[in-house]
Simulated assay, not measured.
Amino acid sequence: MAAEYNYGPAYSAGYNGKGQTIVIFDSYGSPTIRADLKHFDSAYHLPAPAAFNIYHPEGNVVLNYNNLPSPANFHSKQLATEVGWAYETTLDVEYAHAMAPGATIDLVTVPVSETEGVQGLQNLEKAQAWALANLHANIWSNSWATTEQSFDSSTVIKQLNRLYARAAAKGVSVFFAAGDSGVANTNKQGVTYPYPTVNFPASSPNVIAVGGTQIGSTLTANSSHLAEKVWNDGYGAGGGGYSTVFPETSYQTSANIPDPTGMRGLPDVSYNAAVISSVLIYESFDPVYGPGWTPIGGTSAATPQWAAVDAVAQSALGSQGYLAPKLYKIYQSSSLYPEAFYNVTSGNNSFDGITGYSATTGWSAAAGLGTPNISGLITALGSLQ
Rank of each mutant, 00 (worst) to 15 (best):
A168Y: 02
H136R: 13
A2C: 08
P69C: 09
P69K: 12
L317A: 08
G211E: 11
T104P: 00
A10V: 00
A3P: 00
G239Y: 04
W293D: 05
A35W: 06
V312H: 03
S375H: 14
D233G: 06
F151K: 09
Q385A: 15
Q314G: 02
T218R: 11
A221Y: 13
D92R: 01
Y65D: 12
Y55A: 09
A137H: 08
K329R: 15
L132R: 08
G211I: 07
V312Q: 01
P9W: 11
A367Q: 02
L327Q: 07
V118W: 05
G120S: 03
G368P: 01
T109C: 07
V93S: 02
E116R: 15
E94P: 04
A340N: 02
P201Q: 04
S270Q: 07
N256H: 15
N206A: 10
A380K: 02
G179D: 06
P31N: 04
G190F: 09
N66D: 13
S375L: 03
D286M: 03
A48N: 13
F341P: 00
S153N: 09
T146H: 10
G240E: 07
K18M: 11
G290C: 09
S243I: 07
T186H: 11
M263S: 10
T294V: 15
T253R: 15
G171D: 01
P325T: 05
N142L: 11
G216L: 13
F351M: 13
